[in-house]
Design a protein around this nucleic acid. Sequence first.
DNA 1: GTCTATAAAGCGATAGAC
DNA 2: GTCTATCGCTTTATAGAC
Lengths: 199, 199
Amino acid sequence: MSRAEAKTRTRELLLDAAALTFARKGFHGATVDEIAEAAGFTIGALYANFEGKEQLFLELLSSRASSQIAAAEELVREGAATATDPLRAISQYLVDLADKDADFAPLQAEFWLYAVRNPHVLDTMAEQMREPHAALARLITESVDTHGVPPDTVATVVFALFQGLVRRRRVDPASAPPELFASALQWLFTGIEHTEDTS
Amino acid sequence: MSRAEAKTRTRELLLDAAALTFARKGFHGATVDEIAEAAGFTIGALYANFEGKEQLFLELLSSRASSQIAAAEELVREGAATATDPLRAISQYLVDLADKDADFAPLQAEFWLYAVRNPHVLDTMAEQMREPHAALARLITESVDTHGVPPDTVATVVFALFQGLVRRRRVDPASAPPELFASALQWLFTGIEHTEDTS
DNA sequence: GTCTATAAAGCGATAGAC
DNA sequence: GTCTATCGCTTTATAGAC
């Protein structure tokens, strides 16, 4: 491993550790010491690779876009594979993701709060969401008939719905079971009015 | 004003200031000094009325339930008043609320993060949501036919949807215009499939 | 490039005056 | 009950050794 590769590796380890620590403690709650230690280094390595805590956080915010893109692409692949019930496939995939990576939602919330409080990063935040959003819009276009409603619009609503349900699920799991994700998505397209009355 | 009333007033001023400051800076980002100053006092008054920063935050989390209940009750009244299009009335009311009080959503996010990171307050958080949730469920029952889907379930989905859209609106207002809130709610009941194709 | 030691600042909380 | 002054701890960031 060359010197340059070693440094890149250190940076990535620090970024991963930062993601974990910021998710668990928040931006102000997390300390640089703690982040460095979680990565297996001391603060010296951190300051050799990043200007400081804030720049590390912002770099993380930008870099996590790529991992989101990867997830979005897998979502599309999954959706194409199980074309029998694409809506159900989408919801199941996203519920699994949220349940498996418990740090994802808190980190996103932390990013959102930071962006709301520091308007100059709002654009970065919007940018971060663009590709996953586009991927979902593409999947929707391929899978269902939106009857003239722009796929972008539908994607926005679907993301909002899932984000809200994921947060709810954390506070009160019983009120937001996995099936609700699928049902809600189903309702969005066919309407509650057209649900078979099972009461 | 009696001594007891004065103290109660100080407590309330401090709680209001705490809501503002925690919303704008976050739990760790806000300082007790800053909160006291925003209320027009110094830290002495704060420590005379609360055990410390954490207890102040938790008391705020609990106390804000009552103001939410008030908002929920007004929502029900509004909904009953404009019974011509209750879905549209609900969405407009909630969008106005979110746009008017810019600190509300960040404070809720801060509460949620705190609850996720400190599981012993998850119940308090769930409790806080109960009454507004019940109010919305009642309004739904009165306003629309849910075709056997429990109103509680519908309320959960509606809250999730709105919460997600409000957050999105903060980052990218163009992608989440007020009309989208009404449309999304409409779709939930009648289905995108049954939208008139206006393309 | 990374570690250890330290500087400088900010924080929550307390004590005593009024 | 509230204010002012201060303690003690934690934090970010830097400097110098290796």
